[in-house]
C-alpha cells in the first residue's frame, strides 16, 4: 500500500506572523517555519496504519509538501518521525497560490505517486481554511472521510469517528481514499535519535511544476481566484481593569467587582 501524507510548512504560530507588504501574501521567508503541528497527527496516523498492516514492509509512507526552499524542513521532520520517503514540490511560480491552486498541485503529485491512502491534517495552522483535503478528493475523484478523531483501516475499508456538533458519527469509505485527521486522533511521536540519523539516508525527490505537467500560469499569485484587498493589524486592546480578590468581605471582593462590571455593561 502507498500512503502519502500531505504536510505543510507554516510560519511558527508563536513567532510574529506577518504579511508581505508588497503583495499581501503570508510571509513564509522572513519568519521561522516548521511542519504544521496539525500535520504531525497525519504523519502519526500514516505510521500507525503502516505498523498495523499485516506486512509493514509492503507499505510505503511518503511525505509530500508543496512550498518554498525551507519547506524541505517539513519533509525532513516527517522522515525523522518515521516516514520512508519525501517529495517536495518546489517552483518559484508556486508563490502566492491559493487553496484551489495548491489542491491542483497536490492532486497532480498524488496521481504521480499512485497513492492508495492520502492523509491530511485538519487544517493548516496559518491559513486554516481546512478545504484542501476536500478539493483534492474532488480533483482525484476519490472518496473523502474527513476530520477523523479515531481511525481504523481494516483491509480496504477506512472507518473514522467524527465528533461533530450534534452527534458523534462513524463514517466509512473504501480505498483508494482521502482521509483527514483531527488533533484528537493520536499523540504524535517525537523523532528518536535513531530516527533522526536514519532520516538522512531516506530518499527525497524535488519536483518542479514541469515534472507534474503543470504550467506556471495555472498556479501562483496571478492564477489566484481570490484577492486580498486590505490587511489591517488588529488595534491593541486597551488595557482593562484588573482587580485582586482580597477576601475582605463582599464589598471589596473580586466577585463583587466582577458583578458590578457585568451589571454596568448590561450583561445581567
Amino acid at each position: 500500500m502507498k500512503i502519502v501524507v500531505c504536510a505543510k510548512f507554516v510560519p511558527d504560530a508563536t513567532a510574529d506572523r506577518r504579511f508581505r507588504p508588497e503583495d499581501n501574501t503570508v510571509d513564509r521567508a522572513g519568519v521561522d517555519g516548521l511542519l504544521s503541528e496539525l500535520d504531525e497527527y497525519a504523519v502519526e496516523t500514516a505510521l500507525t496504519v503502516k505498523e498495523a498492516a499485516g506486512d509493514p514492509g509492503d507499505t510505503v509512507v511518503t511525505v509530500l509538501t508543496v512550498g518554498p526552499e525551507q519547506a524541505a524542513d517539513a519533509v525532513k521532520k516527517g522522515l525523522q518521525m518515521g516516514a520512508d520517503a519525501g517529495v517536495h514540490v518546489l517552483d518559484d511560480a508556486i508563490h502566492g497560490s491559493d487553496a484551489v491552486a495548491t489542491s491542483l498541485i497536490l492532486a497532480k503529485a498524488l496521481a504521480k505517486l499512485e497513492a492508495d491512502l492520502v492523509v491530511f491534517g485538519m487544517g493548516s495552522t496559518d491559513g486554516s481554511m481546512g478545504v484542501v483535503p476536500a478539493m483534492v478528493s474532488e480533483r482525484l475523484g476519490l472518496p473523502a472521510v474527513t476530520l477523523g478523531s479515531d481511525v481504523t483501516v481494516d483491509g480496504q475499508t477506512v472507518r473514522i469517528r467524527r465528533d461533530g456538533d450534534t452527534a458523534s458519527d462513524t463514517i466509512e469509505g473504501t480505498l483508494p481514499l482521502v482521509l483527514s485527521v483531527s488533533d484528537q486522533a493520536n499523540e504524535p511521536r517525537y523523532p528518536s535519535f535513531k530516527g533522526i540519523m536514519a532520516a538522512k539516508k531516506k530518499p527525497v525527490e524535488t519536483w518542479s511544476l514541469a515534472d507534474l505537467e503543470l504550467s506556471a500560469d495555472q498556479v501562483g499569485g496571478s492564477a489566484a481566484w481570490t484577492e486580498v484587498v486590505e490587511v489591517t493589524a488588529r488595534p491593541p486592546r486597551t488595557a482593562g481593569t484588573i482587580v485582586t480578590d482580597d477576601d475582605s468581605g463582599p464589598a471589596g471582593s473580586g466577585a463583587h467587582q466582577l458583578v458590578e462590571f457585568l451589571s454596568t455593561n448590561k450583561f445581567l
Partner: peptide, 21 residues
C-alpha cells in the same frame, strides 16, 4: 486581553459571583 480581570481563585470567585448575579 481583558476588559476586566480578577486575580483570584476561581473556586471562590465564581461561586460568589454566581450567588450575587
Amino acid at each position: 486581553l481583558v476588559d476586566f480581570g480578577v486575580v483570584g481563585d476561581l473556586h471562590k470567585v465564581l461561586p460568589a459571583a454566581t450567588e450575587e448575579v
